[in-house]
Nucleic acid binder design. Structure first.
Lengths: 329, 329
DNA sequence: CAAGTTGGGGAAAACGTTTCCCGGATTCTG
DNA sequence: CAGAATCCGGGAAACGTTTTCCCCAACTTG
């Protein structure tokens, strides 16, 4: 028996093999508990069967959900997921992309957003472009043009929609706790908030305060807000964690939410359900799974659409932290 | 120039190469933007430079923190992390282990706990043993003997300690919301609770109720508890999420925590800090990073201790959801 | 019965490294 | 100055697959 024969039956080639030989090979493979080396296989294949995902921090549930979406479809398709935390550093991103490129990943997914005017972004774009020339697929999952297919949501519209909701609840003076300074997603969400307020003729009532993306930022921002009366009618936070932080600070101070002030977030992570937070639901899992699906399908030759941008829809989720304004401030 | 020469200067061999030649190689490599194939390198190395981590669900922050610990040291050591979600299914675990074995991972880390009397565990143990024979290191991070080095905490002691704390606060009737039925960690934490209650002479006051590991389970358990008065003096939950769920149900029902009832959890995840939950802090990040360190060091030949079990210490964290009992029930 | 056809299987190349072995050139040593 | 030691660089094997090319045997058909 030659190795070629074994390979033919084990890897399901179209080259005909007699039933007898096939059985012999199968028996031998079973006895030896043989499992082909994915490495050697990768050497002769266009890719290694690895799918990479670059997240800012896997501990952040936002990214964990995306990663879960990626891994689920990757695994189902027979791939293995590679994960790297890049802490929002473009340099690190470039480095990890390179590492995954060295493994001839079928594709790499960029889950994180970037900074506006980041001087290193051009280098990343160049790195992505070179990786793609080598046959490594890339997908961006954020408001960031990496010169590759992008699957994202309209963060402006999301912020706009939830602001509209707050406005429809008769809130006139609304504070927006921003995300981390300089991030594209921060800008987009702020833009959406501001645009909605403007359109509602409430530009005067719009008040942006610096924040971040974590609980502490929301807590601190709310504390600062309370230190400088009058309190706004509502607080929109850049994301759910910030909203929960703000909520916590407000309630700690004895302020009734939503009685005296409404609070809303963006993302609809688990924590939002738990505290009954009004928010806008983003299809994070779908973004991850779609990105992975794009990669495995395109790796299978079924060339999916190229550098197109797919915008997934968001959905307003009203819960208990927002209510119609009743006070006559 | 021969490939061998290039390899020598690029991979830092001890074989001498003249400065002139070295410079030429370096220049050529720079011009070509050459980066060695990790795959080809893996073919001739004892391992591929990949480190695998098997988690139940990366969306669960418990595992996300572990994964983060793994990835941080793996990346620093020049490795790349592979991630797989196994949803607590031993079969899936076996399958993913096999996939990672096919990639000749330097090691695989089992982050999840198992079920008692799981009929498939012996198969997993066998699979681990075979993987180790092939030079693939394995580390277990839970109360589960996989025939490999184990880095874990003493869940019994953790539950015991926090129960002691509750008892020291004069709570006599304490309900314990259990983890998912059948899991080893569920059993251990329950054992610790029961033992502490017994030792305190409070066996009568110990009341175990079925639960799970998520917010909903805690919420539901608390609702059931309230439906069947009298309310216990305190509730200890199998983990933080359950505790937060219970907390939420209790407060929703207008019950004052910690005034009327104390609530405590286990794990000390971010959510525990946010709601001010008394809990016991588990060194999750350290478990992940230690496991990864064990793997990379042992892969470098510095043979770390073998199948020894390392037990990391936990720490009681008292916050605002527990207080001394004042009511005269 | 001869020639063509087809089914089945083997040999070898290719993927890109690292490392072992060897030979030529240079330098040191006696 | 001869021999030996040293220094450098090249050739080739090995890692484990898949795939292409080729060949042989058996069967079919005229």
């Amino acid at each position: 028996m030659a190795v070629a024969t074994a390979s033919r039956v084990l890897s399901g080639s179209d080259h005909p093999v007699s039933a007898r030989t096939r059985a012999k090979v199968l028996a031998a493979a079973a006895k030896l508990e043989y499992s082909p080396s994915a490495l050697a296989r990768a050497m002769v294949s266009p890719h290694s069967g690895l799918v990479g995902v670059l997240v800012s921090d896997i501990v952040n549930p936002y990214f964990a959900v995306i990663a879960r979406g990626v891994d689920d479809v990757a695994t189902r398709a027979g791939y293995v997921t590679m994960l790297s935390n890049v802490d929002r550093r473009t340099d690190t991103e470039i480095g990890r992309l390179r590492a995954m490129r060295d493994y001839r990943a079928a594709g790499v997914i960029f889950a994180g957003s970037g900074y506006v005017d980041d001087p290193r972004t051009p280098d990343l774009v160049k790195a992505v472009s070179r990786a793609r020339e080598e046959g490594i697929r890339a997908v961006s999952l954020a408001d960031r043009d990496l010169g590759c297919p992008t699957i994202t949501v309209d963060n402006r519209a999301a912020a706009h929609d939830i602001t509209d909701h707050l406005v429809s609840l008769c809130h006139r003076r609304i504070a927006f706790i921003e995300g981390p300074p300089g991030m594209t997603v921060t800008q987009h969400r702020r833009d959406g908030f501001l645009a909605a307020m403007s359109t509602a003729g409430l530009a005067e009532g719009a008040h942006c305060v610096p924040g971040g993306f974590d609980f502490e930022a929301g807590h601190a921002a709310a504390v600062r807000l309370m230190a400088r009366p009058p309190l706004p009618d509502a607080v929109l936070a850049a994301n759910d964690e910030v909203a929960v932080g703000a909520l916590s600070a407000l309630r700690q101070a004895g302020i009734d939410v939503p009685g005296e002030i409404s609070v809303a977030g963006i993302n609809d992570l688990r924590v939002a359900q738990h505290v009954g937070l009004t928010t806008v639901s983003l299809p994070l899992y779908e973004m991850g799974s779609m990105a992975a699906r794009h990669i495995v399908e395109s790796a299978q030759g079924e060339d999916a659409g190229d550098s197109a941008t797919t915008t997934l829809s968001h959905r307003l989720i009203t819960r208990e932290t927002t209510a119609r304004r009743t006070s006559t401030a």
